[in-house]
Simulated assay, not measured.
Amino acid sequence: RVRGPTRSASSSRFLRSVGSEEIEVEVLSLKPRFHFDLWLCFTAQNWILDVGRPVATLILPADWFPLSRPGVAEYLHILYNISAPLVLLKEAAPLATHLGIISIVMGTSLHLVADSITRRLFLIGYQLHLSVRENPVMQDLKLSSLIDAFELLFHFDDTLGHLMWYVPLFLALFLFFSGCFSRRKHGEKMPAAGWMLLAPNVAYYWFLITEGQTFILFIFTLFAMTATVMHQRRRGLVPDSNGLFMIYSFCAALIPVAVWVVCLWNDGVLRKKHPGLIYIPQPRAVYTLHQTTCLHLTTEG
């Protein structure tokens, strides 16, 4: 007869009756496997559908699709809204994760609408490294009250949409990480497949921190993961291959972010765009700033 809950992801303990005595038996399950299919889907989805959106906006010709209809970036965003919940649901179990996935769908939908309008503004001269009111496109509007409407739009995009998208995303990642522990006897090694996916995953986290402006969420998630590791070690548990992949990716992502900030530390225009204590410029803002600078140099030449 079985008594007591499961002790960890890799072992269970129960009492077995033998004659008139009860003997406690511990049964070890198979060694936790590395979820290569999950992390491959996660990485491919992020690079193609999330990073691909701003790349498509900046590179592809504007006349491929009418401005009154969705373009390549919008279709990639729609596919991301569909695929991201499916990838998270593959390993999600807690109710909090399910509620978070619902919030992600709502947040990405808000972001889709606002980002679509931002793309069209960009095509008519909107400069992403400037604030809404400082943009020449906005200053040329005959009705100045329209600027308030655009500021509301960017609030839905950069604030509300990002919060509803990224807070539950990092929560889902942390909840998944909290279940990636096993007994010490299984070792602390990451397979070759994990090392292969590490670099693109780290690069995506750099994009998530810089373009999504999620440094605070990211660092608090990393702190929570570190605290969980310390707590589980006292119980004789260590991160399995999936847990190692996640914490290695989070720690390594801080290196390109630090290099990015140091290289752009003395840029006055970007500092005005990103005021405050935490200064992490957005890649799209850097791109439009350098594009504008190059156009001025070409005109003067």
Rank of each mutant, 00 (worst) to 15 (best):
M106T: 13
L297T: 12
L295F: 11
D267V: 07
S182R: 11
Q291E: 13
S182G: 13
L222Y: 07
K189P: 08
V262G: 09
L270K: 03
L99Y: 08
M106V: 15
G236W: 02
M230N: 12
M164C: 14
A114D: 01
N242Q: 04
I147W: 01
A62E: 10
W265Y: 13
I124W: 06
I247W: 04
V72N: 01
I280V: 10
V286Y: 02
L89I: 06
P239S: 02
H35T: 10
L121F: 04
R133H: 01
P191Q: 07
E91N: 11
L67E: 09
S8L: 04
L58G: 06
M196E: 08
L88V: 08
A44L: 15
P54F: 03
S178A: 11
C180F: 10
F177Q: 00
A192K: 14
I104C: 01
E74F: 01
L110N: 03
F218Y: 07
I101M: 04
A192H: 09
A73V: 00
L153Q: 05
H290R: 13
N81I: 15
F14M: 11
H186S: 06
V27F: 10
A56C: 08
N201K: 11
G107A: 01
Y248K: 03
L217K: 04
A96T: 08
S68W: 07
L30G: 13
Q282R: 14
S109A: 15
P54A: 05
Y80P: 07
E26D: 09
V257I: 07
T288G: 03
G19V: 06
V113K: 05
K185M: 14
S68A: 12
S178I: 10
K90R: 14
V87C: 04
C180V: 08
S83W: 13
L244V: 04
T118Y: 14
F181N: 01
T226N: 13
D50Q: 14
G187N: 00
F42G: 04
K272R: 15
N135I: 03
L295I: 11
L15G: 10
A114T: 07
R235K: 15
A44K: 08
L76W: 03
W260K: 01
L198H: 01
H111S: 12
C180W: 08
H111C: 12
C263H: 12
A92R: 03
F218G: 06
N242P: 04
D240L: 06
V2S: 14
T43C: 05
E24L: 09
C251I: 13
T298Y: 12
A193M: 12
G4N: 05
T97H: 09
V27H: 14
I82S: 05
Y205N: 10
L163A: 14
T97Y: 09
F154W: 04
F207Q: 00
A92K: 02
A193Y: 10
G71N: 00
L121D: 02
V105H: 05
C294D: 15
V269H: 14
I101K: 03
L28S: 12
W260S: 01
G100A: 02
L76P: 00
G71Y: 02
S68L: 06
